[in-house]
């Protein structure tokens, strides 16, 4: 299973980016093997509008089943739902720590957006 974590840098030790749609980077991890890839989100980060929706499309294309992030707005949440991707909000610390908490089952799936659109 692949999971994506929003990241403010291109490494596992970078802090989790609290924004979903306008995250700087995504770290995509294959949970079974621990292998990971990093993905630059600059194009969506700079979108005039609809960043969350397009970012949801990006992670959907990467074959991700779970997204771990700080906050997720209503349109992004709906897009993730349509794509069949689980959202986990409230992540803090480094990307590595967020992945470990997920593996230990210490996080739970968000059932709705946790912020208004354009919160940051």
């Amino acid at each position: 299973m692949k999971i994506a974590v929003t990241s403010s840098g291109a490494t596992l030790d970078a802090p989790v980016d609290p924004r979903f749609g306008r995250a700087a980077w995504f770290v995509v991890v294959e949970v079974a093997t621990g292998a990971f890839t990093v993905h630059d989100n600059t194009q969506n980060l700079n979108a005039a509008q609809g960043a969350g929706i397009q970012t949801a499309e990006t992670v959907s294309r990467l074959g991700v089943e779970v997204v771990i992030t700080g906050h997720c707005g209503p349109k992004a949440f709906r897009a993730l739902q349509v794509a069949g991707i689980q959202a986990v909000t409230g992540a803090t610390g480094t990307v590595r720590e967020a992945i470990e908490r997920f593996q230990k089952g210490e996080v739970k799936q968000a059932t709705s957006a946790d912020v208004e659109g354009h919160w940051a």
Binding site: E57, R78, A79, A83
Partner: peptide
């Protein structure tokens, strides 16, 4: 449609165009 849209109002999700009319 998604490539044409300058408002990011269409996303391609699960192989289908999905519209976000508010945008």
């Amino acid at each position: 449609c998604r490539r044409l849209c300058q408002s990011n109002a269409i996303a391609l999700l699960k192989g289908k165009a999905v519209v976000f009319p508010e945008l």
